[in-house]
Write a protein that binds this DNA or RNA. Structure first.
Length: 243
DNA sequence: CGCTCTGTTAAA
DNA sequence: TTTAACAGAGC
């Protein structure tokens, strides 16, 4: 029978599920303490030359950030008459939704504006946008960089709880080379949970998500483990269920 | 793994 | 009100 696996984050008050193990591992970095996150973050390559303090857990976000420093705006609007360009693809998406909703002239790569006979017509007035030097100036200004985590929502603050770090360490402790599976019947769903197949059998993969320790080896040193009590029974779960 | 996308926020 | 910058999830 075909199976689907969901990889569940069992950090208290989280419970997020991911179809991919790697996505769970990535997610779980968000539960680390601020200090440990700092160790994992990618640092802006312009830090030394500009004083930029930006650092991020996801490398892809850094790639986008770097465009601020270089002034690169590789994400260009494909509307035939629009010259909008952005360094952040999300900005281009928002631009398109706002200014060219369901626009049939949108073509891949903006080829329309390359056609002979293309007539420039002013698009909707876009108040563009900081120059690269403006942005750089702001990024490197002497004012303190804003601290986003300081104004995190209550829910996020909860997720930043150091307990989450303990949990991750214990997950690594519980790692085993091969799956340890437990099977149990489900006669009825837990309250508030929609179980469409009341008698289906769930298979729980008791392995913690292996990428956690692999991705953050420096967080798993013996000294760090020394004051961690075992809570292997609360390992992350992979729920495997019939399709 | 890397690109893409969405939603949030500060600041203009 | 609009947009740049961003965090984090989707694929």
């Amino acid at each position: 029978m075909p199976e689907a696996t969901i990889h569940i984050c069992v950090v208290e008050n989280c419970g997020m599920g991911f179809s991919r193990r790697g996505d769970l591992a990535r997610h779980q970095a968000t539960h680390l303490s601020e200090a440990d996150k700092e160790q994992l973050k990618h640092r802006c390559p312009f830090a030394e030359t500009t004083g930029c303090q930006y650092a991020t857990l996801q490398k892809g976000n850094m790639n986008i950030h770097v465009n601020i420093h270089t002034g690169a705006k590789p994400y260009t609007c494909s509307h035939a008459t629009c010259d909008f360009a952005a360094g952040d693809p999300s900005q281009l998406n928002k631009h398109k939704r706002r200014w060219h909703p369901d626009d049939s002239t949108i073509v891949p790569g903006g080829a329309a504006k390359q056609r002979p006979g293309f007539r420039e017509k002013a698009p909707a007035p876009l108040k563009l946008k900081k120059t690269a030097s403006d942005v750089l100036q702001r990024t490197t200004s002497s004012t303190a960089p804003r601290d986003r985590t300081a104004r995190a929502s209550p829910a996020l603050q909860m997720m930043l709880d150091p307990e989450a770090e303990l949990f991750l360490l214990e997950s690594a402790d519980a790692m085993s080379p091969s799956p340890r599976r437990a099977r149990f019947g489900v006669s009825d769903g837990p309250e508030g949970m929609d179980v469409t197949e009341p008698d289906s059998e769930l298979e729980v993969d008791l392995r913690p998500p292996s990428p956690t320790a692999a991705a953050f080896p420096h967080l798993y040193s013996p000294s760090r483990r020394s004051n961690i009590s075992s809570r292997a029974s609360q390992s992350p779960m992979d729920l495997v269920f019939p399709l």
